[in-house]
Nucleic acid binder design. Structure first.
Lengths: 174, 174
DNA sequence: GCCTCGCGTTCTTTATATCGAACGATGCGA
DNA sequence: TCGCATCGTTCGATATAAAGAACGCGAGGC
């Protein structure tokens, strides 16, 4: 087991923990671990047993494999990070993306194929989004639809923004 | 970690080993383990460290996840699986969930706190969703908003459904 | 100011996963 | 037959993962 992989694992656990706004002590208690063990693990110098990882996966509500496997490198353009969550297999084809704009980051996207629409739903921060000339300002809990077969953009404000994006392809792409 | 899961893991490793016509000693040597350790592991009374599993996965040439028969623990009620993707830290607080309804599964949710709204966005399958009495049928790429401070439900049809759900809390919960 | 609490880290101690040696069983050739 | 492999198991010794106590730090409250 490489040190880098252990490091990654630790970071991943810490990330999932913070997403839930849990303190290290809290997660340790929920999982029935000593917080010292969890601390070492998150720092990346530990070689945890299966049981330990299992307990954490249960509490964090993630499939076990997700803790270890490094997810495909999220692509990042101009301060906007995108990670594919899911791609449907029905008709129309729909993709779900987890998106994050760093503060003041702005991404201008070229027109996609005809008929493609997108739908953005903000989780935190404020986001300017939409077809060029018809952008809308969205806050947490707000969402909007727009046509993606024209130039469009995503822009975070002072605090950046985290949002879900679904892309709807009118017929099977490619 | 349940004894059954450990048992399963051991059987799985033994199975993969025998598929390759390797003796226990041989695999142990290749992986740099004591054969006693491997023996105990295959019998299902061991709690291996991540490093140990890692070495075995490499020698057996299987993705790590394949060793652990995936028995994840996202919360699951009545055939509806939910996994938290992200929780915002702004105001209002917004949670993003990845949801999956098995075919014909139906989940009736009680009223949440006052003012809470939800927003569902379908990735694949067809979903009946909404406040009780005002349900809507959604297909891939469609979405809708509804009040969650009343009884509401999620129901997949013949093929089940995968969708994103955002929950918007008017003020900080708890 | 002081006190208390919860945070995450770093120690020491304890439990246990791994190791290495020895074992009985089985197969095979001399 | 015996002798010598190799198999998988079991045992005591050792390395180390996890537990538990103590630490320094920062945020409130009085």
């Amino acid at each position: 087991m490489t040190p880098e992989a252990l490091q990654q694992l630790g970071q991943r656990i810490g990330q999932l923990r913070r997403q839930r706004h849990w303190s290290l002590s809290h997660l340790a208690e929920r999982a029935g671990l000593a917080k010292s063990s969890l601390s070492r693990l998150e720092q990346g110098n530990a070689n945890p047993t299966l049981d330990t990882l299992w307990r954490l996966a249960i509490q964090l509500e993630v499939p076990f494999a997700e803790l270890i496997i490094d997810d495909p490198a999220p692509l990042d353009e101009g301060g906007v990070t995108a990670r594919l969550i899911e791609r449907g297999r029905g008709t129309p084809v729909v993709e779900a993306w987890w998106m994050q704009c760093r503060p003041h980051a702005c991404r201008r996207a070229e027109a996609h194929g005809a008929g493609i629409r997108e739908h953005a739903s903000v989780i935190s921060g404020r986001l300017l989004v939409g077809s060029e000339g018809e952008e809308r300002q969205l806050g947490p809990g707000e969402h909007c639809d727009f046509a993606a077969d024209r130039r469009h953009l995503y822009r975070g404000d002072d605090e950046g923004a985290t949002f879900l994006l679904t892309i709807v392809y009118p017929q099977r792409p490619l």
